[in-house]
Structure formats: C-alpha cells, structure tokens
C-alpha cells in the first residue's frame, strides 16, 4: 500500500475545474516529481493534498485513511508538510521564529530539530535573529525548507523550490534535498526544470491542462514522449 495516493482527484476554483481525475501514488521513502507547463495544475495538486483547497474526502488517501478535504491544520498534524511556492515566510518573525513555528501543530521526535536544520543550512544559524525579510532569496528558501522539516513530516511537498534562484543556489538547495531524502522522508517535488526533476526523482508525473498526461521512471521516458506530454503537441 502506498503512503499517499490520489484517486480520481478533481479540484475546482469556484466554477472552474482545475484538475480532472488525477491518479497518483507515492511510496514510503520515494521521491516523485510533478512536471508540466504553467497552469497545468501542479500547484493545485499540492494544494489539494495539503488541505488549502477543498476536495472530496476519498480522493486523497494517506497511510490508509482518506484525508481529502480535511483542514490544512489537521493534515499537517498527520505528517504532510508543505513548502509553498514563493517561500512565503512570515515577515514579522525572525529566522529562528520562522523555523520554530513550523512545529506548532506537529511537535514530534525525529531527525529534524533546530540544531540539525542549522547543521543542514549553517548560514541560518548565523542569521537566526534577523528578520526573515532581510535574507537573500536562497536563504529564504532554506528557511522555508527548514520550517517544513522541523515538524518531521513523513511526506514533504515542495512547490517550485528553485524558482527565482541563481543556479549555484539551486545546486545547494538540491544537495540539501538529497540529504533530506536520505532520512527516509517521502517527497513530492513540483518543478519547472525538467532536467532537474528527472535527475532527482524516482518517478515522474507530467500534468497537462489539469490532466495526467504521462508517468513513469525517468530512464524509461524518452525526450519525445515528455515533450508531447508537456506541451500537448
């Protein structure tokens, strides 16, 4: 039984349907990448899982229980943490406070503590008392990752963690992600950069206009198939 699965997942913004019958699964310890063009429904997919978007209950199954449509607060308590697109740190909190707030709802023992996160991103320890707004984009992304990690989630949802960052910073972030995977955390990675996604993930799903257009292991997928699944040509 997979750790997390979606069955026939539909999602709506008001009258607008953004996802159509999405079937996916995520095994324990696995990393899955979601790729697709802008507006394909990648972020919507993550929002449906983490509870920011209401979906029907049995569409999302986590550890054998349906969690679709539960409130975001109760989903995070069960061990699904989200790194939102655009980082969205709390501007009136310091770096350390931003990290600590991550375990407000779920404070469980595990590999991740303030110390181990500071070990992962040493720069954050130096800047622990500065307001989060004073950080560079890469450092902010580190805080956003740490904030999600500190709840010791079983599933980590990453929404475009490389967006707007310099290549060298992206490399650092992905190195950190590798270490996070090594602790056994399952990861769903939404990524625009296809090459990066293929390098990192165990399996890849491609979305196109709200529908699942392709899935498979990176080495099984040819460039042509991805191209057609991505652009719909």
């Amino acid at each position: 039984m997979p750790l997390l699965a979606t069955h026939n997942l539909d999602a709506y913004y008001g009258d607008f349907q953004a996802l159509f019958g999405i079937e996916t699964y995520l095994e324990e310890g696995e990393t899955v990448a979601i790729i697709g063009a802008n507006g394909a429904g990648k972020s919507t997919f993550l929002k449906s899982i983490c509870g920011l978007l209401k979906v029907s209950n049995d569409c999302v199954v986590y550890a054998g229980h349906p969690i679709g449509g539960l409130r975001a607060t109760s989903i995070v308590r069960q061990g699904i943490a989200m790194i939102p697109e655009g980082r969205r740190l709390f501007p009136s909190l310091t770096v350390e406070e931003n990290l600590l707030i991550g375990r407000y709802g779920r404070n469980v023992a595990g590999p991740w503590t303030l110390e181990t996160i500071f070990a992962l991103f040493p720069i954050l320890k130096e800047r622990r008392s500065t307001p989060s707004t004073a950080l560079s984009g890469g450092q902010q992304q580190m805080v956003a990752i740490g904030r999600a990690l500190i709840s010791n989630p079983r599933v980590l949802l990453c929404d475009e963690i490389s967006l707007g960052l310099a290549p060298i910073v992206i490399r650092d972030i992905y190195q950190a992600l590798q270490k996070i995977r090594e602790t056994g955390t399952s990861v769903i990675l939404v990524e625009q950069d296809i090459v990066r996604a293929m390098q990192t993930a165990d399996r890849v799903y491609c979305f196109q206009e709200g529908r699942l257009s392709l899935s498979g292991k990176p080495n099984e997928l040819t460039r042509e198939r991805i191209q057609s699944a991505y652009f719909g040509t």
Partner: peptide, 23 residues
C-alpha cells in the same frame, strides 16, 4: 511566547499559518 508567534504568523499570512498547523 509560542502563542505570540502564532498570533504574529496568523497576522502575516493566515493561509500559510494553517500549513504550520495553526488554526
């Protein structure tokens, strides 16, 4: 205090605060 942190976080961005488990 932790509650105060939650107060400020909710004030900043109530949607993301919910992702932290803050009701």
């Amino acid at each position: 205090t932790a509650v105060g942190r939650a107060f400020r976080a909710t004030s900043d961005d109530s949607e993301i605060a919910q992702l932290m488990g803050i009701d």
